[in-house]
C-alpha cells in the first residue's frame, strides 16, 4: 500500500504539472483529494493494514496529502494569476477612442463677467443695487447735472419712447439717484453699491456697437470720500481683476455727473504693455470712467454736498470680456449662437 501511495503521489504531481485551467484543476482535486479521491480513499483504508504498519503509513499518507494540498494551492494560484493575466490582456482598450459626452449647461459670458465684478466689488464692500431699464429723462439726464439741451447730452445717443420724457436708460448712472434716495435715508447714510444693468444706445448694430449692453456703475457716498480713495479703490479693483502687477493710469476726462472726472487705463492684459493690436499699440486698455460725484448730483440725491462727498465709476463688462478673450465682434453676445456660448 505504501508503494501504491507513492505511485499515486507521483502520478498526481505529474498530472498537476500539466494542468493549466481551473476546470482541470477542480477535476484533479476531486480525483485525488476529494471525499472519494484516491488519497482520501487510501487514508480511509489505513485500518485494513497490520497494526504495526499503520502508524508509518498514516504518517506518510498525511505527508503526501499535505504535499498535494500545498502543490494544489500553488497550482491554483499560478492558474489564477495566469487567467487574470489573460483577462487583463484581452481587456485592453483603445484609449484613443472618444470619451462618452456628458451634456452640460452653462452661463452666458455676460453673466460670467458680471459675476466676476460682483465678487471683486463685494470683497471691497460694494453691494449690488439694481434699477430700471425704462427711465425718465429727468433721472437719466437732468438730475445728473444735464438739463435739457445740455451739450453733454450729445455724448449719449438716446432711444426716446412715445411717452414724453420717458427714455431707455443710456447708462446705469440714473441708478445713482435712485440708490441715494432708497439707501441714503434723506442723505444721512453712507452708500457703497455697484449698479449693474442693461443700457441702450441709439446706434446701428455693427461689430463694434450694440443697441443694448451691460454697464456696471459704482457709487460710494460718505462723509469723507476723497479723490485719493477713488484712485485707491479703482487701482485695487484692477489688481484683483487683472493681476497684482498690472499698472493703472488715470487721465482727465469729462462726465457731467462727476467732477473731477477721469478715465482709467490698465496695462494691456494681452501684451503686458508692450503694445499690440488690441491696445492699438498704446500698451493701455481703457477700463473705466470715474470721478467725484458732482455736488449737484449729491444734492439731487438728498445729500448736503458741503458735508458729504462721493465717487462714482462706470465699466462695460462686454467690452472687458471682448478684450480678455480677443472677441472681435460684439454681436456675438446677443446673437447667442451656441457654438459661441459653449466656449465659455
Amino acid at each position: 500500500m505504501l508503494e501504491q501511495l507513492d505511485s499515486i503521489y507521483a502520478q498526481a504531481l505529474d498530472e498537476l504539472s500539466d494542468i493549466t485551467t481551473g476546470d482541470a484543476l477542480s477535476g484533479w482535486e476531486r480525483r485525488y483529494l476529494g471525499k472519494k479521491g484516491e488519497v482520501t480513499q487510501l487514508l480511509r483504508s489505513t485500518g485494513k493494514l497490520p497494526k504495526e504498519e499503520r502508524a508509518a503509513f498514516g504518517q506518510r499518507a498525511n505527508v503526501i496529502k499535505n504535499e498535494l494540498i500545498g502543490a494544489f494551492a500553488g497550482r491554483e494560484e499560478a492558474i489564477r494569476q495566469h487567467e487574470l493575466a489573460t483577462q487583463l490582456e484581452e481587456g485592453a482598450l483603445d484609449v484613443t477612442l472618444p470619451g462618452r459626452p456628458v451634456q452640460t449647461g452653462g452661463l452666458h459670458p455676460a453673466t460670467q463677467t458680471l459675476r466676476e465684478f460682483y465678487a471683486v466689488w463685494a470683497e471691497m464692500g460694494f453691494q449690488v443695487f439694481r434699477s430700471r431699464d425704462v427711465e425718465d429723462d429727468e433721472t437719466n439726464f437732468t438730475l445728473l447735472n444735464m438739463p435739457p439741451h445740455h451739450p453733454a447730452r450729445d455724448m449719449w445717443d438716446t432711444f426716446y419712447t412715445t411717452t414724453p420724457g420717458v427714455i431707455l436708460r443710456t447708462h446705469t448712472s440714473p441708478g445713482q439717484i435712485r440708490a441715494m434716495h432708497e439707501l441714503g435715508e434723506d442723505g444721512t447714510q453712507p452708500i457703497r453699491v455697484i449698479l449693474p444693468g442693461m443700457c441702450y444706445r441709439y446706434e446701428q448694430i455693427s461689430a463694434r456697437s450694440e443697441v443694448q449692453f451691460n454697464q456696471v456703475e459704482g457709487l460710494a457716498v460718505g462723509r469723507n470720500i476723497r479723490l485719493t480713495d477713488l484712485k485707491g479703490t479703482i487701482a485695487e479693483f484692477a489688481r484683483r481683476m487683472y493681476g497684482e502687477d498690472k499698472r493703472v493710469r488715470f487721465r482727465g476726462s469729462y462726465f457731467p455727473f462727476t467732477e473731477p472726472s477721469m478715465e482709467v487705463d490698465v496695462e494691456c492684459i494681452l501684451c503686458g504693455g508692450e503694445g499690440c493690436g488690441v491696445c492699438k499699440y498704446t500698451g493701455w486698455l481703457e477700463i473705466a470712467g470715474c470721478g467725484m460725484v458732482h455736488p449737484i448730483v449729491l444734492h439731487n440725491g438728498g445729500y448736503d454736498p458741503t458735508e458729504w462727498s462721493g465717487f462714482a465709476f462706470g465699466m462695460g463688462p462686454e467690452r472687458m470680456t471682448m478684450l480678455k478673450h480677443g472677441i472681435q465682434d460684439i454681436r456675438y453676445f446677443w446673437g447667442n449662437d451656441l457654438r459661441f456660448l459653449e466656449q465659455f
Binding site: G125, Q127, L183, Q189, P190, I191, R192, A220, G222, R223, N224, I225, R226, L227, T228, D229, K231, G232, T233, A235, E236, R249, F250, R251, G252, E259, P260, S261, M262, M292
Partner: peptide
C-alpha cells in the same frame, strides 16, 4: 477743484484706502 487736480496731474495724486465708515452690508 477739477482744474487744480487736472493741471497738478492725476498721475501725481496719491492712492488711499477708503477711511470712511463702511455702510451696513
Amino acid at each position: 477743484v477739477e482744474e487744480i487736480a487736472r493741471v497738478y496731474g492725476y498721475d501725481r495724486v496719491p492712492i488711499t484706502v477708503i477711511a470712511d465708515e463702511l455702510p451696513p452690508q
